[in-house]
């Protein structure tokens, strides 16, 4: 299955090595500095819920500092894959993995991997905005405080920097001590992004970050992703194919647990190699 997925995924990317990566890079004007190294590489990586193989033998690299979109119909395993990257699936007792998923030369599921440190480096934003029922300031400062940052000055700085990065500073700077639940849905979601950025992660995982938001807030989040592109490696799961094509450099298409196709976004949307991909992006099924 893995071979077929690979074969389907792209002719240029000769499966395992980085030799084909040059072709894989986007056109010159879209390239980012120091980007394009494999930040996460899955080898023969499967995820199981009990006996059910939800994600089947993935072979793929996620490239640093680029935005990778993960699309596919419901139940195809895209969220499962995303959550597996920072071991959120550990919360589900019946969930286990096989194969390897390397992050910075370290196996995410290795015996000696500290999942707490891992989650700090691989931040995640969820489908539903989930701010803590605390003040805006405390929401952002929570992560740095966990790392032992105590001085008010440093915290102030981190909070401002994170909120600016998340394009929320101007809207909330006068009410940092107000409860975060008083913000609108879109603001809450950007707050969640800021909260994740505050601990300076290397990878940002976004699990359908806009599916609970109105179009205006969605646009803001998309702008935000565009801003963060080039500074962070971003993986975004989305149901919205326009969104995937707008914000991402690469797109993974999952279908029934297989990584059917993985290609530069433009290529995947204009010239899909696989019939299933074509059927999906043209809306013949969803």
């Amino acid at each position: 299955m893995q071979m077929t997925a690979e074969a389907k995924s792209s002719n240029q990317s000769a499966s395992k090595s980085g030799a084909s990566r040059e072709i894989f890079l986007p056109p010159e004007r879209d390239r980012v500095k120091d980007g394009g190294k494999p930040h996460l590489s899955a080898k023969n990586f499967s995820i199981f819920y009990g006996d059910f193989e939800a994600v089947k033998k993935i072979e793929a690299d996620i490239l640093s500092k680029y935005v990778t979109a993960i699309i596919g119909p419901s139940g195809c395993g895209k969220s499962t894959f995303l959550r597996a990257i920072n071991r959120m699936n550990d919360l589900i007792p019946s969930c286990y993995t096989s194969g390897s998923l390397m992050f910075d030369g370290e196996d995410v599921y290795g015996k000696y991997t500290d999942e707490v440190q891992l989650r700090r480096k691989i931040g995640m934003v969820f489908q539903k905005p989930n701010p803590f029922p605390k003040s805006i300031f405390d929401n952002i400062a929570y992560g740095p405080r966990l790392q032992g940052v105590k001085e008010k000055k440093v915290l102030d700085e981190i909070v401002e920097k994170s909120l600016r990065k998340a394009a929320l500073w101007d809207e909330v700077k006068d009410r940092l001590d107000k409860n975060a639940l008083g913000l609108s849905g879109g603001q809450q979601q950007r707050l969640c992004v800021a909260r994740t950025l505050a601990v300076e992660p290397e990878i940002l995982l976004l699990d359908e970050p806009t599916s609970a938001l109105d179009p205006k807030s969605t646009a803001k989040i998309e702008d935000l992703i565009e801003e963060l592109r080039g500074s962070y490696t971003i993986a975004i799961v989305t149901h919205n194919m326009q969104q995937a094509s707008r914000v991402s450099d690469y797109t993974m298409f999952f279908y029934e647990g297989d990584l059917v196709e993985y290609a530069p976004t433009k290529q995947l949307f204009t010239n899909p190699r696989d019939q299933v991909t074509e059927d999906y992006i043209t809306g013949r099924f969803s």
Binding site: L91, R119, M124, V125, F126, P131
Partner: peptide, 14 residues
């Protein structure tokens, strides 16, 4: 709600 747990885990709490 599990979302609170996920949020806290996501920023690196034990």
């Amino acid at each position: 709600p599990p979302s609170i747990r996920e949020a806290a885990l996501g920023v690196g709490s034990s």
